[in-house]
Write a protein that binds this DNA or RNA. Structure first.
Lengths: 176, 176
DNA sequence: TATTGTTATACTCTATAACTATA
DNA sequence: TATAGTTATAGAGTATAACAATA
């Protein structure tokens, strides 16, 4: 990576040092492999993409297994149309249902069905297992503590300066 | 995340503990946000996807800016057809050229062009900058050292038990 | 027979814009 | 006017399988 990491000789003024570069590439590769493995497991075990699993998992954890579309979209990165697409797929499979909200006629309440809960329950052990095998079997308790701490702080930092909300096309007021 | 992290009361026999779960989610979110931001920058600055940038960056670092298709495919996760697709895009834009290898008539040598090098050079500062701002501005030197160390070990662990090479359809001998 | 790479094809996913309906 | 959601549509990306050519 010499060419990219250090395109010009010298003290590399505004670039990343070797250590930073290595950490960045390690992070990208680890997350990529993890993403790939998790996706494959969910697909094989329950014919679910990671996104679909996330939606279901969110609903499982939600009060009474119900959330508005907008609340789901806020968690999963997607555009609203993307969520509608995924919700359509899950709905068609009987894993969720959608109904108009009594409080706000514009809103749609997404509810997880029994079949949805069952599927999550069926898929979860293998999901968790693959994460443990790939990720946590390679680190000590101390590693875990530090990793969680650092990544937690980085996440807060990133959320504070959201990369994707930079151009709020419609909505996402700065609460001003 | 109580429902997912702890579906049944008790000592959670084969599951992940709270700390592991938090670390996992932090990792997934951080890498997702980072991926998103980096992708957006590369797209805006040079009309490149991250994959395309990776291909070009690899070529820049390669001896004389040349690599075989297979070598490129080994680094970038893609299927061969996927690489052919991406190479076609880069070729069309004059960022790379492809020519038959003199050594092995089956192989194709991919070479980065001057335009390709220029584009990488033009895009690199912003790329590096966004990584630093998002990732490294939120951590101390000590954090960086530990993060790099842990992730490096995890990466080795994952490479040792490759998730995607589990089903080598054609190729990828275990060198036995 | 194994390897390298391309092509054709189908499919999944995502994003944009236009649209409806309610607040 | 702003918000919630859907639809239509187009585009990028990926995977599979069939294929040709060379080792």
């Amino acid at each position: 990576m010499s060419g990219v990491s250090d395109p010009t000789p010298g003290p590399a003024p505004a670039g990343l040092n070797t250590e930073q570069l290595a950490a960045f590439f390690a992070l990208m590769e680890v997350s990529s492999l993890l993403q790939y493995a998790v996706d494959e497991h969910l697909r094989a075990d329950g014919d679910l993409s990671y996104v679909q699993f996330q939606i279901l998992a969110r609903l499982v954890d939600a009060s009474e297994g119900r959330l508005r579309m907008t609340d789901l979209a806020d968690g999963v990165v997607y555009s609203r149309s993307g969520l509608t697409y995924q919700a359509g797929l899950l709905d068609r499979r009987g894993l969720i249902t959608r109904s108009p909200s009594p409080d706000d006629e514009r809103s749609v309440i997404v509810s997880i069905t029994e079949a949805g809960r069952d599927l999550v329950a069926r898929v979860l052990p293998g999901h968790v297992d693959s994460i443990r095998r790939l990720l946590f079997d390679a680190m000590s308790d101390g590693d875990l503590a530090v990793l969680g701490d650092v990544l937690g702080r980085v996440r807060e930092h990133m959320r504070a300066a959201p990369p994707r909300s930079a151009r709020p096309r419609a909505g996402r007021k700065t609460s001003s």
